[in-house]
Design a protein around this nucleic acid. Sequence first.
DNA 1: CATCTTGGGTGAACATGTTCACAGTATGGG
DNA 2: CCCATACTGTGAACATGTTCACCCAAGATG
Lengths: 208, 208
Amino acid sequence: MAIKKKSHRLLQKEATRKILLQSAYSLFVEKGYEKTTMRALAENAGVGLGTIFKHFSDKPSILAAAFEEDLNAVLQNAFRTLPSLGITSQLIHISNHLYSFYAKNPIFSRALIKEVLFLEGDHGKVLHQQLQIFLETITNLIGNAVQNGELSPDTQTSDGATAYWSFYFTGLLLGLMEPSFNVSTQLALVERLIDKHFFEKGDSFRGC
Amino acid sequence: MAIKKKSHRLLQKEATRKILLQSAYSLFVEKGYEKTTMRALAENAGVGLGTIFKHFSDKPSILAAAFEEDLNAVLQNAFRTLPSLGITSQLIHISNHLYSFYAKNPIFSRALIKEVLFLEGDHGKVLHQQLQIFLETITNLIGNAVQNGELSPDTQTSDGATAYWSFYFTGLLLGLMEPSFNVSTQLALVERLIDKHFFEKGDSFRGC
DNA sequence: CATCTTGGGTGAACATGTTCACAGTATGGG
DNA sequence: CCCATACTGTGAACATGTTCACCCAAGATG
């Protein structure tokens, strides 16, 4: 029952933080990141300007916090519906879910990635860790594929995860550089790269 | 000599722009990007605050312009000393030159990449084009390797260039996420990924 | 040469992220 | 129950990127 042992103060603080995050989320989606001012956020949330900075160190941290939940939900959903077989379809499945999320609002996604890239402070640490966890998960997927015999036993699973992430992230960046993010185009690119990296091998003849 | 047919006004404008870029360069290197204020830049360059914005649309554009020259020099130097044989050593050679440049000042490099990522306006277009040119150059290198017989004839040269760039950029990002950029570590990663992608035959079980 | 037009140069004014000293209240100890 | 402490809440003040109306000399026009 230790969980419920929260003082009135802590409850109030959490409530304020929650209101701030909800207001920030809707304002960011409605107006975009840059056009959302801290004063507008304060007014919309019904708190004072200075209050915001008692909860978040700076504006990028609010962005990260407001969409951490969303991104986690997308990731969770992606892994919950993961195909049970085929490393390529698994990786494409994950890419598809993430791309679809980012494609919903390219302008906003650009701001999100830009601000979060080298985010410092606590939130930076958290995101860095989440990337590590994601990479480990991919590493495990690749490890399973190796055990299934789908991939060669001498595959470096960790490097494979890095390779996938580099394909995924490059596809994301290139897609976001266009005015509108074309999910299927970028997915096709990622699939070709994955296929080439893990399967197609140039010099040897195809035995079959 | 139509080139020298510049009016006094144009000459003066170019001179001012040059002074601004030089001042910006030294201030950025000395103080860092964010700590360099437009007012400090104006004072250091000996011009008025408003003058800056007659030459550059915003602060990120100054950053991009001030280091475009540097980056071009690094790239030119890299390609001038390019090994004549071996696609892997060529790509590593290029990566090495670029990483060494970024490693000189990681804090600054983080700002550079962050601000330039989705840069809009004229400078954004220019950088986008330069990336395209770079990718085409890499595509040609890979095409040569295919003609040499080093790579299989059915290699998709364009996708190969994209794959290399994704490895390169990922190595750059991961390196810049650490407090200090370790060039050899990141080079080793990129080399492993390149090797795996273009050469190592993975599929021992050839399940066809 | 006189006048007009253009465009670089300028700093005050503005918009906005961030800091800070202060206020009020919940918490904890006596 | 009462006081001391600490912590959230607050808006004024500050720092800085950007805009804008204005100035003025170089070039154009006659």
